[in-house]
C-alpha cells in the first residue's frame, strides 16, 4: 500500500517531465526512422529493420536508468527522501516505489518501438511477443543500474553517468551501430563481458524465431539484472541507516 502510493508519485514525477518522455519514447523512434532511411539509400544488412529494432529497443531501455537515477538523486538533494525516511516506510517500500513505475514504461517503450518498426516494414510475426517479453528482463539491468547510480551519486553526476556515459556505452558496446566482429580484439571481449550485446543478440534471435539461440544470452542478461538489483537493494538498506 505504502509502496503503491509512492510508486504513483514517482510515475507522476517522471511523466510530467517532458524531456524524459522525449528521450524515452521519441528519441529511439527518431533513430529508428533515420537509420531506416539511410538503409533505404545505402542498404547494409546490419541496418535492416529486423536487425535494427532489437538494438534500438535495448538502447531505448537504457533511458530507464536515466529516469530513475535522476529522480532518486533529486529526491536526495531536495531532502524529500530524508523526510520520507522519517515515516514508517520500509526499504522495500522505497525500492518497489522506485521500480514499479518503470515496468509499464519499459513495456510501453518496447511496444512503441516495435509498432514504429512495423510501420517501417518489419514483418508482423508472433515472435514479436516473446521478443518484447525478453526485453522486459533486459529492463531489470537498467532499473538496477538506475537505483544504484541514483542512490550513490549527486544529481549532476547521476545525470551525466546515466544519461551520457551509460546510454553511449550501451549503444557502442551492443553491436547495434556496427558489427563488433569487425572491430574485434579487446573491444569485442569487453563488449561480450557486458550484458548489452547479449541483450541485443537475444532480441535478434527471438525476433527471428531462433529460440534455441536465446541461451546463453538470456543467462548473462538475467544474471546481470539480478546481481545489479541485489546490490542496489543492499545499498539502499545501508543508505537508510546512515544519511
Amino acid at each position: 500500500m505504502r509502496a503503491m502510493v509512492f510508486a504513483k508519485r514517482n510515475t507522476l514525477e517522471i511523466i510530467r517531465d517532458p524531456l524524459s518522455l522525449f528521450f524515452g519514447l521519441g528519441f529511439p523512434v527518431i533513430l529508428l526512422v533515420l537509420l531506416s532511411i539511410i538503409n533505404k539509400n545505402i542498404p547494409v544488412d546490419l541496418f535492416s529493420v529486423s536487425n535494427l529494432t532489437p538494438g534500438i529497443a535495448v538502447f531505448g531501455l537504457s533511458f530507464l536508468s536515466l529516469f530513475s537515477a535522476q529522480l532518486i538523486a533529486k529526491d536526495r538533494t531536495t531532502a524529500l527522501l530524508s523526510r520520507l525516511f522519517t515515516t514508517p516506510m520500509t526499504a522495500m517500500d522505497f525500492i518497489l516505489g522506485y521500480t514499479l513505475p518503470l515496468l509499464p514504461m519499459a513495456l510501453l517503450q518496447s511496444v512503441v518501438c516495435f509498432l514504429c518498426a512495423i510501420i517501417l516494414g518489419l514483418k508482423m510475426t508472433w515472435s514479436i511477443v516473446p521478443t518484447i517479453l525478453l526485453l522486459f528482463v533486459v529492463s531489470l539491468i537498467f532499473i538496477g543500474l538506475g537505483l544504484l547510480i541514483g542512490s550513490t551519486l549527486s544529481e549532476k553526476a547521476a545525470t551525466a553517468i546515466s544519461g551520457a556515459l551509460l546510454t553511449n556505452l550501451c549503444g557502442w558496446l551492443s553491436g547495434t551501430w556496427f558489427d563488433l566482429e569487425l572491430v574485434g580484439g579487446a573491444f569485442r571481449d569487453i563488449a561480450y563481458a557486458l550484458p548489452f550485446v547479449h541483450a541485443v543478440e537475444m532480441g535478434k534471435a527471438a525476433l527471428a524465431g531462433n529460440y534455441q539461440d536465446i541461451w546463453p544470452h538470456l543467462g548473462v542478461v538475467a544474471g546481470y539484472g539480478i546481481v545489479l538489483l541485489a546490490i542496489a537493494v543492499t545499498l539502499f538498506h545501508k543508505k537508510m541507516k546512515s544519511i
Binding site: 508519485r9 507522476l12 514525477e13 510530467r16 517531465d17 533529486k74 531536495t78 531532502a79 524529500l80 530524508s82 523526510r83 522519517t86 515515516t87 514508517p88
Partner: peptide, 16 residues
Amino acid sequence: KSLLGVSPQETAIAPN
C-alpha cells in the same frame, strides 16, 4: 516513526 511528524529545516516537497 509511526508516531512522528517532521518538518525538516530544508523545505522538502515533491516538485512535480
